[in-house]
Design a protein around this nucleic acid. Structure first.
Lengths: 112, 112
DNA sequence: TCTTATGCATAAGAAAATTATGTATACTTG
DNA sequence: CAAGTATACATAATTTTCTTATGCATAAGA
């Protein structure tokens, strides 16, 4: 995420969520999808993404499958059963975190 | 922030925002206020907070003033003029970031 | 031919936490 | 009265997670 080196720690959750929605994506595709959804504001760097994917795979959250398309290799990632559960958990955690952050940024509401 | 080592990078913004609301706070007070607002879910550690406060002070965003209360020293921080502007900027950036994160986590809305 | 796009990967360094200490005073509880 | 908890600051070692810089390789466009 290069946009402004803002929040760290959300990349793995973002990846898991995208794979929950799409059941099969390759690295480059993930970077483009995120860029697209955020109107160019999040730019996931390869230096951040690939280590994250490898780590999730090593933890058993993702399985891989390579395909050769147009003479270029694509490494597709999908959620394992465990990865699916992890996605649920991580997304829920992140959403709760966002809620709390919101409370901190908007103290008027709820305080009076 | 120890709750679940979630998002990093938001602590400085949280501090700036609190000081925007309160015009004068000391470190321990900040940790308690955050715990209070988030119902105990964010626990700001001293190891994260004090270096952040020192850095913001070194950057000219905060000014300090020490008081001795009950024989214990309190170091009060307030926003400088520059810090006030920085608070505006940082909070706006964080809110935009949260909006984008929300888009990633809730793809149904806005897509169709 | 040179740049941009597609596609993977790793290494060096920086940033920002966590965890573990350390100092000191005050209050509570057994 | 000793021990633990709360208040209040601070720093050092370590870990996590990025950014930035490389490297390789193919394809498309200027």
């Amino acid at each position: 995420m290069s946009s402004s080196k803002l929040l760290k720690g959300s990349l793995a959750t973002i990846v898991l969520k995208l794979l929950e929605e799409n059941e099969k994506m390759y690295g480059y595709e993930i970077t483009q999808r995120v860029k697209e959804i955020t109107a160019g504001e999040f730019k996931i760097t390869e230096g951040a993404l690939y280590p994250t994917l490898h780590k999730l795979e090593a933890e058993g959250m993702l399985s891989t499958e390579t395909q050769k398309v147009d003479n270029r290799i694509r490494k597709y990632y999908s959620l394992t059963k465990e990865g699916n559960a992890e996605a649920q958990t991580k997304v829920a955690e992140l959403e709760e975190f966002l809620l709390n952050l919101h409370k901190l940024l908007n103290p008027k509401l709820g305080m009076g």
